[in-house]
Amino acid sequence: MIVFERVTKRFGGVTVLQELDFRVAEGEVFGLLGENGAGKTTALRLLCGVLKPTSGRVLVRGLEVSTRTREVRRMIGYLPEEPSMYERMSARELLHFFAGLYDVEEAEERAERMLELVGLAERADSKISTFSKGMRQRLSIARALLHEPPVLVLDEPTSGLDPLSARQLRRLIAEMSASRTVMLCTHHLQEAEELCHRIGILHGGRLVAVGTPEELKAGLEEHGWSSPTLEDVFVWYTGGGVANPGG
């Protein structure tokens, strides 16, 4: 479904991603973990065709993103890290605008359904400038799902949200991911464990570990850790392999 084939990305003289190579299967929820600046957002932007790889290629359903950009973008619903939207528009107007860009049939009905799904039907005609961050994030999800994409790309979806809003959003993502392939990056390890089938850990632009949460933890046990958490796994791979505090 999603293939990263030896993808390297450089900005100026800085290598942000190096030889990134992994696959995400159809219907899978794949989480990318990594410290700040590890290259998570860059990887997602490459997947959406917002950026182009310096070398290597990214494929979605067999289509190469940098050559079949428009078709690939139609298959992807993208939630960027910042839920920035046109402040002077209402929620409904925003969805109608994006429905137009994605050629969504029966755009009005679809927009209403999305607004109901994310719990914003009552605020459909309010200006986005009056929305809280949680509401903006939910509206962003509605926008990303509007054209019923088979792939959902979420960049830190619960970042900056209060626990309640974050929980609501996680529930929504879990519902959405039942019928879609999802690639998300997050700093919240609990969220990753809760939502993702498999997790990849990025460190300094390299993919240093990939596996299910259980596989990753088991890998750490092989290094002598007892009952490691996902946090231990993360620290092990990104902090240079510290000694097992509980070992």
């Binding site: 959406c48 065709g49 917002v50 950009t69 428009r70 973008r73 139609r74 992807i76 993208y78 960027p80 910042e82 920035s84 939207m85 046109y86 402040e87 994006f98 860009l101 994605y102 050629d103 962003s140 926008r143």
Partner: peptide, 14 residues
Amino acid sequence: LRRTLEPLLASPLS
């Protein structure tokens, strides 16, 4: 600066 360009760049628009 408002970062509203990114959703547009990720849409089918060139």
